[in-house]
Every structure is written in structure tokens, then in C-alpha cells.
């Protein structure tokens, strides 16, 4: 079996990631109580993306895989989800202009 499938993540790293995720949950709640105007949403999504990235890279072992297709699959998912959201908004966002 290839080496990348067998990468054993050290315990201290799992512990660090777990604690970071819990702390960031607290942070995101705290930030939501501040009035940052439109930045509330941006910060909330940024923190969520940070947490999601940690889960994907460490817990799902994407950081350690040499398999290009795994990364391609993730990029494809983000890209096509982005297409769905942005091109839909191209309609909903500009419908009132006329």
C-alpha cells in the first residue's frame, strides 16, 4: 500500500486542531455580537471557512495525500458550487435595475 494512505497524524496535532475548532466556535459567536456592519457576515464566513479547511486538511488527511484527484474533486466542488451561486445572483442581484 502506498505511503500516503498510511500517514499517521501525530496525536498532538489532532489535539491542537480539536481545541482550535472549539475556540473558533466561541470566537464566531463572540464576533456575531459585535456590530461590524456588513463585515459581520464576512467574518462569520471567514471563520467557518477556516474551520472547514482545518477539518478537510487534517481530519480528512488531504494535507498528506499525494493523490491529485482528491484535490481536483475539492476544487471542482467549490468551483461549480460557486458557479451556481454567482450566476443565480447575476439574475436576482440585477433584476431590480430596470
Amino acid at each position: 500500500m502506498s505511503e500516503n494512505q498510511h500517514h499517521v497524524v501525530p496525536l498532538w496535532l489532532y489535539a491542537t486542531i480539536g481545541i482550535t475548532l472549539l475556540v473558533m466556535t466561541g470566537v464566531t459567536y463572540f464576533v456575531a455580537t459585535l456590530d461590524l456592519g456588513p463585515f459581520n457576515t464576512i467574518v462569520a464566513l471567514a471563520i467557518a471557512s477556516f474551520k472547514a479547511t482545518l477539518v478537510v486538511l487534517i481530519f480528512m488527511h488531504v494535507k498528506y495525500t499525494s493523490e491529485k484527484m482528491t484535490k481536483a474533486a475539492i476544487i471542482a466542488a467549490i468551483f461549480f458550487l460557486g458557479l451556481l451561486l454567482t450566476l443565480s445572483l447575476a439574475d436576482f442581484g440585477t433584476r431590480a435595475w430596470l
Partner: peptide, 14 residues
């Protein structure tokens, strides 16, 4: 995809 919706009331810009 929205070329199926040109007369459905969507945004003209889109």
C-alpha cells in the same frame, strides 16, 4: 442555463 428563462421575467442584464 438561464437561456431557458429569457421571457420568464428574469433580469435583462443577466
Amino acid at each position: 442555463w438561464a437561456h431557458h428563462m429569457f421571457v420568464a421575467g428574469m433580469s435583462v442584464y443577466a
